Amino acid sequence: MTVRVMLVSPAMNAALREARFEGDAPLDRSGRERARAAAGLVPETGLALSGPSERCRETAAALGLPARTEPALSGWDMARWAGRALDEVAAAEPAAVAAWLGDPSAAPHGGESLHGLIGRIGGWLDALDGPDGTVLAVAEAAVVRAAVVHGLGLPARAFWRLDVAPLTLTELSGRSGRWNVALGRPPAGPPAGSTW
C-alpha cells in the first residue's frame, strides 16, 4: 500500500531564533499566533501525530490537530549540548563541533549521531501504515531532514544541505524503499492575499 506522510515543522520559538541546539522549549508568542493562523490550512488525515517536544505538541494543538504523541519522532538527542547556542559550543569545543559536522557517525555531545538519527527516523518511516494511508505529524526540523535523507537514499552529508522553515509541510509518498518527496510548502498553501 502507498503511504502519504505529511511532516509539519513546528512553529517558531526562542531556541530556534537564537540558534540553540534543540531543547524542549515552548513556542514564543509569534509562533503560537502563526500556528493558530495556519490551523485551517492543515490537510485532513486519518492519523495525526506529534513529536514529544513541547514545541511540537503546542504546534499540533494550535493547528487544531487531535495528535497523539509519538516517541519515535523525538528530536535529535544532543545530550549535553541541548539548549546551548551553537556559537557557544563551537567556541568551547571547536574540535568536537568539527567532528560532529564532518563525521555522520560522531556524537561528541554524548547523544545520537547523525547516522543514528537517520536510522531511527527511517525505521519509523518504513514501518508506517496509516489507517487511510495518510499520516500527518508535527516533527522537529531535524526529524524532517532525516526523513528526506532516508526516503531519497541520500548520503548523510546531504542532511546539512536541507533547510526546513517553521510551519512548512514536507510530504513523502510511497513505501519502504521507494519514496517521493515534496519539500517545504505551507500546510495547504497560503490563503489568497496572505503571506507566510
Rank of each mutant, 00 (worst) to 15 (best):
G40S: 10
V42L: 08
T45W: 00
A48M: 06
G51V: 06
P52D: 12
P52E: 13
E54P: 02
E54N: 02
R55V: 07
E58W: 04
T59S: 09
A61M: 05
A62Y: 03
L63I: 05
L65Q: 00
P66C: 00
A67M: 05
R68T: 15
E70F: 08
L73P: 05
L73C: 11
W76A: 02
W76S: 03
D77L: 04
D77N: 13
M78L: 14
A79R: 13
R80A: 13
R80L: 12
W81T: 07
A82N: 01
A85K: 14
E88P: 10
E88A: 14
A90C: 09
A92Y: 11
E93F: 01
A96T: 08
A96H: 10
V97L: 14
V97D: 02
A98Y: 12
A98W: 12
A99L: 14
W100T: 02
D103C: 12
P104L: 07
P104Q: 04
P104M: 02
S105P: 00
S105H: 12
A107R: 10
A107G: 08
A107T: 05
P108Q: 11
H109M: 08
G110V: 05
E112H: 06
E112N: 10
S113Y: 03
L114R: 03
L114E: 06
H115D: 12
G116A: 06
I118P: 01
G119I: 00
R120E: 14
G122Q: 07
G122I: 09
W124I: 03
D126E: 14
D126P: 07
D126V: 08
A127N: 12
L128W: 06
L128D: 01
L128Q: 15
D129M: 08
G130P: 15
P131T: 02
G133H: 11
A139D: 03
A142W: 04
A147E: 03
V148C: 12
V148K: 03
V149S: 00
H150D: 09
G151R: 04
L152T: 06
G153N: 11
L154D: 02
